[in-house]
Amino acid sequence: MNIYLRLVYRNIRANLDRASLFFELIFPLFFIFVQGFGLNGIVPPFDVGNGRVISYSLFLAAGAVTLTVINGGTNAGTQLWFDRKNGMFEQLLMGPFTRAQYILSIIFATLIIGVAGSLLVFGFAFPVLGASFAPTWEGALLIAGALFLGTMFFGAFAIALSVVLKSSETFQIVSTFAFFIFLFTSSVFFPASSAPSAIQVASLANPLTYTTDIFRAGLFNAVTPTVSLELGILAIEAAVMFVIAVIAFRRIRV
């Protein structure tokens, strides 16, 4: 079996915290089925681009699906933490693997967890989203690209955090707080353009904004000329964060 397959399988099998994963999947569903429908009555439908007018519950449901990329990212940091805490990090590095193979296996496992989680939440949310789902090849590629790059960014971000922070407790607190900031300065809950100017500025640097916007554009066939620019920015942010994570990872003292 290929070395990456073995390591990815091991990462998922050994380090996936099933209880946390359950709540990470349940969490977006509350937004979709509780908050979305709750606010639907007071928020009028609006244009998400390309003349596509959708209800707030649809808008939020699409945003909630992209929320799972953050959860995938947290898992990447947790995998590394578990391995460091339990001595498996050194054990694996004294095995027939390189550091690069090890970190890539965490990223691959994170991508699988993030994308699979998104698809699962999407499946649960289909009764809400299904009616307005306008599948096209272009849309499918945008959705795949958004989920891939979003998970890549947040996975790399969590790995970098878990290297820098000295205890697993601090990692949990800081990553939760950081992801909270990412969440509320993005377009998951509301269009960034309608937010106060400070949040609008912050949202322009926020990869979750681009992940969510691209995902919605692909899902609702609401592709505007800015989507390719957003995709480019997200790809650059993901690549930069990946490089930062690799540099941080190489500095882990054993």
Partner: peptide, 13 residues
């Protein structure tokens, strides 16, 4: 093969 001084185990198994 290496048996480290510190513990090393997969906690979920």
């Amino acid at each position: 093969g290496v048996v480290q001084q510190q513990d090393s185990f997969d906690q979920g198994l």
